[in-house]
Design a protein around this nucleic acid. Sequence first.
DNA 1: ATAATAGTACAATGGTTATTGTACTGTCAA
DNA 2: TTGACAGTACAATAACCATTGTACTATTAT
Lengths: 111, 111
Amino acid sequence: MTNEQPARTYWFPEREDITIYGVLAALSDPTRLELVRQLATGGERCPYEFCDVTSKQNLSHHLKVLREAGLITARYEGRKKYLSLRRELIDDMFPGLLAGLLTAVEALPQT
Amino acid sequence: MTNEQPARTYWFPEREDITIYGVLAALSDPTRLELVRQLATGGERCPYEFCDVTSKQNLSHHLKVLREAGLITARYEGRKKYLSLRRELIDDMFPGLLAGLLTAVEALPQT
DNA sequence: ATAATAGTACAATGGTTATTGTACTGTCAA
DNA sequence: TTGACAGTACAATAACCATTGTACTATTAT
C-alpha cells in the first residue's frame, strides 16, 4: 500500500508556544548546544550525522527537546530527514540571542 | 572583638571558572531570570528587595546559583549588601548574550 | 537585654531529566 | 527474503534541582 506522508510526523511548536524559558533550558545542555552549533555552522544535517556526539537513543531524546522548544525543524526529502535551525523565527523572537550564544560557543577552548 | 571583614564572604568564580553552560543553566529558570532582569534594569539591589519574587530561603538558593555561575557579585557597604550583575565580564565573554536575552525578557507579555 | 530584621545552613521532598538497555518500525540493498 | 541501517518508544536508573520548613547567626533598634 502507498503512504504519501513522511514515515513519522511530529508536533512542532508555533510562535506562540515558544518561550524564552524553554529555549534557554534547551540550550543549557552541552550536548544540545553542540547540536545547535553544528546546525548553525553546517546547515542542514541528517540525525545519523550526529552519532559521534552521543548515542542514538540519547540523540533522539535531545532532538526531541530541541524540537519541542522550537529551536529546530525537520524536512523530509524522499526517505531522508533533514534537520535545521529555525533561525529566522528565533532571531525574530529573541534578537541577538543565538548570535551571541554561537559567538561564545565558537570561542570555546575545545570544540 | 573586632571583625574587619564583612560578616559573610563567599567564593566568586574567576573568568576561567565561568562556562557558557553554567551561565545558560543559571538563566534558564524563571525566578533567576527575573532576578537578573531586575538587576539589569534597576542596578544594584539588596537581597530583601527581592522578597516579593520568592521566599527568602529560595531567594538565597537562587542567588547562590547566579553567583556560582558568575553572573552576579556582591558589595558590602557597612552592614548592607548590594548585589549587581557582572555585566562587563559577561558581555566580554559572551557578547550579545545578555543584551539579546534582556530584550526578549522585556518583551514578555507579563512582567 | 530584648525583639526585629536580614540572611544562611541543612534536611526533606517531589519533580525533572540525562543516560542506557531493550525492543520495535520502516527503508534500502543484496 | 534476508540483513543492515536509521530512527523511535518505552522502562529503568541515577542524578540533579526548585521549593519549603526548621533552625541558626549576625546586626540593628528599642
